[in-house]
Amino acid sequence: MKDKIQREIMIKATKERIYDAIANPEQVVLWFPETLEGSYKVGERPILGFGEHGKNQIYIEDAKPHEYFAYRWVPGSNHFLGDVLTVANTLVEFRIEELKDNSCKLTLTETGFATLPINLAEKCFTQNSGGWEFMLGRLGKYFEEV
């Protein structure tokens, strides 16, 4: 079973523009968290705010303009305050790759699900609700993708 999520998206913008949207604290709040408290620099532990859904304190792992940005957090939990490095967490990585014609491929990976504490996955999943009914036939297809 996969311990990793990987998603890709094509974006018509320069890598500088995309990197800025991810790594600039004034920009990231315009599409991801609603608010950001604290320093948004490598080695720091800022708090992402998701309005009524709670707050999530993260750890900025690494940043390489204009191609790579990574942080650690407790996924699915919309409320975690504390030092994320002292608990089981996942690593979220953004990679920007420049293509021809002024567009870029953005690859998102999140790894470390197997290290999550007991019950966390279950808890955050019941919070989200829905998506529980999966048919047997889809399972075979899923394993082919692994």
């Binding site: 999520i5 523009r17 995309i18 949207a21 991801f32 999140e110 955050c124 999943f125 999966f134 399972l139």
Partner: peptide, 28 residues
């Protein structure tokens, strides 16, 4: 058991798809 694991990953994937689309709309 397997449905639980699969559903968890699927919900995480869906959340990222939504976020990445928001990012795309924002920068484009």
């Amino acid at each position: 058991s397997l449905e639980l694991a699969r559903a968890f990953i699927t919900s995480m994937e869906n959340q990222w798809d939504q976020r990445l689309n928001a990012l795309k709309n924002f920068v484009e």
